[in-house]
Design a binder for these strands. Structure first.
Lengths: 145, 145
DNA sequence: GTAATTGCAAATACTTTGCCACGTA
DNA sequence: TACGTGGCAAAGTATTTGCAATTAC
């Protein structure tokens, strides 16, 4: 975890971002939780809630997104989610449509070959994919009946 | 197309929805375009723009979604997209992050087996998935340089 | 007749921008 | 010092709800 944080900070710095309290706090928060978080989650989390305005967090997420350090995900909530983008790593998610819980799937993602085909056939650049499974988790399913 | 519309109307009716002008118009619109559309797209489209309030379209989409006739998609735009849910059919999408264009991918989706594994391992009910590819389309890529 | 559906208006939620002050390099 | 960054306030966009009037069944 500590290692991850150091690494992220290094990437951020070398891509031109300044080392500010907000940057440290947001990377710490993302590294500690290591799951997709909304702007609201982040700006009410730990140091961020005390030290930074939500606008700051928003703009910082924009910059981190531009630099390829985080990625914005669309997970069906009204609010956007942001997740760390760690080279060599890819995550798919399983989401309960009732309670909104989000968990990462650790099975290998079966989409890479198709992605390669699409890259070649369409000429799209910077291609990546997002895969999510939606359903009702056992807990919510039993609560319904 | 006509067939599709008839079919949708039948499904809607038999799931308990009343046959109103708004229902006919929205199903016509979705069947004609057969691509994901936002609430804004829909309510400014054809008959809907003249005959229905946007709130009506919104609530109708909610009901159609409850009944499993349309599905809400998260495609990274700020606005939600809605697409027809046609039994036996599954669509993945390729989206340009620059111009926002959305096209359906016709290659067979490689995720079904994983989906089955997840269903069995996690006990999730009503499981389905959403797969999208994002990138820069050739047109936008050349416009950038 | 009854319950579902509709329209209009208003409220909410989340995101985004403007502007000037501040801090890092 | 210069330019990226931060805070506060306000605007923008999309969604959602309340309620009375209307319509399908």
């Amino acid at each position: 975890m500590q290692k991850l944080y150091e690494n992220l900070l290094e990437r951020a710095r070398s891509s031109g971002l300044r080392r500010t309290k907000a940057l440290e706090a947001i990377l710490t928060c993302l590294a500690d939780h290591n799951r997709p978080m909304t702007l609201g989650d982040l700006s009410s989390c730990g140091h961020l809630s005390k030290q930074c305005d939500q606008t700051t967090v928003f703009r910082l997420l924009q910059r981190l997104s531009d630099k390829g350090i985080v990625r914005r995900l669309g997970l069906h909530e009204r609010a956007a989610y942001f997740a760390l983008l760690i080279p060599g790593t890819h995550r798919d998610y399983l989401i309960c449509t009732e309670c909104g819980s989000i968990e990462a799937i650790d099975a290998p993602c079966p989409v890479h070959q198709l992605e390669e085909e699409i890259r070649q056939e369409t000429g799209f650049q910077n291609l990546y994919h997002e895969l999510e499974f939606f359903g009702t988790c056992p807990k919510c399913a039993s609560a319904q009946s």
